[in-house]
Design a protein around this nucleic acid. Sequence first.
DNA 1: ACTGTTTTTACGAAATTGACAGAAAACATG
DNA 2: CATGTTTTCTGTCAATTTCGTAAAAACAGT
Lengths: 150, 150
Amino acid sequence: MDNLDQMDFSILNYLQENGKRPYSEIARLLDVSEGTIRSRINKMLKNGVFEFIIHTNPNKVGLNVQAIIGISTQLGCQDAIASHLQKYQEVRFIGAFSGKHDLIIQAYFRDNESLVHFVNEELSKIDGVMHADVNVELKQFKDTFSYMIP
Amino acid sequence: MDNLDQMDFSILNYLQENGKRPYSEIARLLDVSEGTIRSRINKMLKNGVFEFIIHTNPNKVGLNVQAIIGISTQLGCQDAIASHLQKYQEVRFIGAFSGKHDLIIQAYFRDNESLVHFVNEELSKIDGVMHADVNVELKQFKDTFSYMIP
DNA sequence: ACTGTTTTTACGAAATTGACAGAAAACATG
DNA sequence: CATGTTTTCTGTCAATTTCGTAAAAACAGT
């Protein structure tokens, strides 16, 4: 259904460098026609391989407090808690994990007060949440989307 | 230097929905000229407010194992370890945190073997790394980039 | 009100994209 | 190997978008 070949990966790599790169430029780089690039990109988009987005610098838009929160849940509550948390716009990432924490989320807040409010007034009141390890980001070293691709 | 106003935030919101949305469409939506949108976007790009990228679905490109690893470091080693880790393409995110772990990283691997190799052969051999809590992702519930913007 | 600066608008040229049809290539099957 | 089928690629043209630039407008400070 959607086996990617070497050319697809090359296209993805070029787009990772710059999401605005035009089809025609990629076509030149790969020495094929522009239509080929376009049809392959559209196919990958249709298959959910990737999407065009923007990456906003949180600090530049007033989201100065970032946290990764490890959550311990009661057995069988993971899904319910996760889908509850999905609604919060502050929450960027939610995953179920094997390891010390059942759920790990990453969330961005305007300030410390918003973070504290989220943890004390929202998170703590969700059924099945037993414990939350809050890690507040002090410094960011890397935040990339250029995955290693063959 | 780069105070964003309401129109800037609106532009960002529209672009978050679709990174390919043309200037002219945003201009129509906000009822200003195309040039205005273009100059504001270019200004924000220049100031590092955001960037155009693609978000690749890790599973669709053969990165089936995702992990969040909490690292305990010896005092004073954080920066050195972080800059060492930056080089690894597998590592998507690195941050210094207050809380249980000094550093938290998120990384994507082809398979379990690659993860184990990374932890045992690479991570464990870095000077100052005392302990690593490896959390392997079992299920992803949310992974968005549409930050809450005023 | 005047001046200098920044932002917005307007408009034509260049480039990109989208749609479609035909050619070429790849593939499976008898 | 030949055949028919499917998929992928290419080329073309119209529509749309982007880019460069100069004029107009808005704004801030004196």
